[in-house]
Write a protein that binds this DNA or RNA. Structure first.
Length: 280
DNA sequence: AGCACA
């Protein structure tokens, strides 16, 4: 079926302002923190990565000054949109050459640094050691340093370092179907297609995955209660129950695509379980 | 793509 609005725009994904815009509770974070970027990443690349994601508002690239480390922030019009983008892009391979993959988390605080007409398309913050000879080389926008954002993100619970390897980033090619094509529906919590549940379903485990291995990993997260593994003849799958939905969601996002030492077929695939684990 | 326990 042809999209009766915008039939000819290959860049068309969907218009954020047409999507159901559930109001964020005050204080909701709508900014993502992106690390795992190659040190030669360009602001343009970050912009291209996010610009067609529903609800995208602005992004900025930041040279932290710690070595060549570069991080980025992307701001969306709502928390949900930010989560959707995070779920789609987290763990994605950003540079096929080096194999570096994106690590995306919710930022510690919202970016106040919106895209401003006067400041050019990309916001770049350069904290690299200012060599006397070399003035600010980038299109940095203003003088005030950045009091707003958080580098080492962490929602109070971020015990790990990752090495994911996942799908290819679709950054620039505009060939993606809109997640929502016009008609209203409860914005899906994305991530899994399933509806949110405080029990997680963990698949793509290797045949040698042990309950112990998963237990070790999961027990580092707040709210984790019970793990169950089923082999059911085929590959093992696991169910992990959490006290709160938010804690399950955090773990799903944090561990998505991660490799276990027993993994032999890629990283874990984590979704919300179809039903909450029965308390017993 | 794979979702159990009651």
């Amino acid at each position: 079926m042809a999209a009766y609005h915008q039939p000819y725009d290959p860049y068309y994904v969907c218009h954020p302002h047409l999507l159901p815009q559930l109001a964020d509770e005050p204080g909701a974070i709508n900014t993502l923190f992106i690390s795992g970027l190659p040190d030669d990443v360009k602001a343009r690349e970050i912009h291209n990565l996010f610009r067609r994601r529903p609800g995208f508002e602005s992004c900025q690239l930041k040279y932290t000054g710690r070595g060549d480390q570069v991080v980025a922030f992307a701001t969306f019009s709502s928390h949900r949109f930010a989560m959707a983008a995070m779920n789609e892009l987290n763990g994605v391979k950003f540079d096929p050459q080096t194999g570096s993959s994106l690590h995306i988390e919710v930022a510690r605080s919202n970016s106040r640094r919106k895209e401003r007409p006067g400041s050019g398309p990309y916001v770049v913050i350069d904290n690299r050691n200012k060599e006397p000879s070399k003035s600010q080389d980038d299109q940095s926008d203003e003088g005030d340093s950045d009091p707003d954002e958080a580098h080492e993100p962490g929602n109070g619970n971020s015990p790990k370092e990752k090495d994911n390897t996942k799908s290819e980033v679709d950054s620039d090619q505009d060939s993606r179907a809109p997640p929502t094509s016009g008609h209203l529906e409860k914005a899906s919590e994305s991530g899994s297609g399933a509806r949110p549940c405080s029990t997680l379903f963990i698949a793509n485990l290797g045949p040698n995955c042990t309950e112990d291995e998963l237990q070790q990993l999961l027990s580092r997260y707040p709210g984790f209660s019970i793990l169950k593994i089923r082999a059911r003849g085929g590959m093992p799958v696991a169910f992990a129950d959490f006290e709160e939905l938010e804690q399950a969601t955090y773990v799903m996002n944090d561990l998505q695509g991660d490799l276990l030492s027993s993994s032999d077929r890629g990283g874990m695939h984590i979704e919300y379980a179809r039903s909450k684990m029965r308390k017993q």
